[in-house]
Simulated scan of single mutants.
Amino acid sequence: MSASSPSENVINAAPAAVDVLAIGRQVLREEAAALHDVADALAATPDFVNCVQAILQLKGRVVVTGIGKSAHIAGKIVATLNSTGTPALFMHAADAIHGDLGMIQPEDFVVAISKSGDTPEIKVLVPLLRRKGVPLAALVSNADSYLAQQATYVLHAPVTKEACPNNLAPTTSTTAALALGDALAVCLLESRQFSAADFARLHPGGTLGKRLYLKVGDLSRQNQRPQVAENAPLRDVLLEISGKRLGATAVLDAAGQLAGIITDGDLRRMLGSFSDLEKLRARDILTPHPATIDVEDFAAEALVRMQLRNITQLVVTEEGQFAGFIHLHDLLREGLV
């Protein structure tokens, strides 16, 4: 029987009795303290500001590279840049010297992430980047490293100790690098006045995208438009509400203007208030001045208004005229609730 490896012994060992809550809180405090140090480091040199300005003037793309855990952070920064209006590519530092360096064009800008700034892969890559003649920003913890000394800009993310008790597993350093990447992306976003509408165009899928681009009219136009005249008898009101299946009907005056709304809840309450139902007309039981929303408003705003009023439907208007209903079920179907 072969002997177990050290890693297998660790995995199979009985868990130690530790204060999980205390350890978790300590990790978060240590990483939060490190972010304060990173924020202070931004003010120490003009490099961060100059880096942002250089990227704003860029005609090419931002290429972010790293190795190991830094490569994962690089990938996330690339995703954030792309989604906020800055074209970006990920290049693994190890793959760069095996052909991927060809993705870098003369008008690009490279951000290299490395805690130490002295890894073998980085030392091989940097001279190749210098031959390309592209600007290089070093996102490093060690400002005296080889990478920092060779870079055009140094984005300093100082970390004195990892949250790992052995000071080995990248924890605090990756958090610091990720946060500094976010700071870079947000500065670019705000400098470009990148709006919610711009964001929506890049995020058309999923709930987030729908919240940013789906309009009330996109949903209400798929529904029927229950409506009755002010003098409509109770029977017509009942048939309109039950037949159109939206739990309500609009009541229009002689000029076709919205006079009010009658919901199925109004009908139930009405049964205990009136003795002679045959004589009832829509105008007798309507609720005037109902909650409305325009076809051009976002569907997410319809949800907010329903929640504030504790109702399940809104009257939809278009240029001030009755245009239908939007129901809570419409929002549920689209995943907005």
Results as ranks from 00 to 15, higher is better:
1 M>T: 14
4 S>C: 02
4 S>K: 15
5 S>A: 12
6 P>R: 09
10 V>D: 00
11 I>N: 01
17 A>C: 10
19 D>Q: 11
21 L>T: 12
26 Q>H: 11
34 A>G: 05
36 H>A: 07
38 V>T: 09
45 T>M: 06
53 Q>Y: 04
57 Q>G: 05
63 V>C: 14
69 K>I: 06
82 N>T: 15
82 N>M: 14
83 S>G: 12
85 G>K: 08
90 F>H: 11
91 M>A: 13
96 A>K: 09
98 H>V: 13
101 L>R: 00
102 G>S: 14
111 V>Q: 02
113 I>K: 05
113 I>A: 02
117 G>E: 09
117 G>M: 07
121 E>L: 03
122 I>D: 02
129 L>I: 00
137 A>P: 06
138 A>E: 01
140 V>P: 04
142 N>P: 06
143 A>G: 03
144 D>W: 01
144 D>Q: 15
145 S>N: 09
149 Q>R: 04
152 T>S: 04
153 Y>E: 00
154 V>N: 05
157 A>D: 08
158 P>K: 02
159 V>F: 12
161 K>L: 11
164 C>W: 03
165 P>L: 12
168 L>F: 15
170 P>G: 10
175 T>D: 06
177 A>T: 02
178 L>C: 13
179 A>Q: 09
180 L>M: 15
182 D>K: 11
182 D>R: 07
184 L>F: 10
185 A>H: 05
190 E>D: 15
194 F>G: 12
196 A>E: 14
199 F>D: 12
200 A>R: 09
204 P>K: 03
210 K>D: 01
217 G>F: 08
218 D>K: 02
219 L>A: 10
226 P>I: 07
226 P>G: 04
229 A>Q: 12
231 N>S: 07
232 A>R: 10
236 D>R: 09
238 L>H: 04
240 E>F: 00
243 G>T: 12
244 K>N: 15
245 R>K: 15
246 L>Q: 13
247 G>H: 14
248 A>C: 15
249 T>V: 15
254 A>W: 02
256 G>K: 14
259 A>C: 06
263 T>W: 11
265 G>S: 09
279 K>F: 05
285 I>M: 05
292 T>D: 03
293 I>C: 05
295 V>N: 02
297 D>H: 09
299 A>C: 09
302 A>N: 14
307 Q>H: 13
310 N>C: 00
311 I>N: 01
313 Q>D: 05
314 L>H: 08
317 T>P: 06
317 T>A: 02
321 Q>R: 14
324 G>E: 10
329 H>C: 06
335 G>W: 06
337 V>S: 06
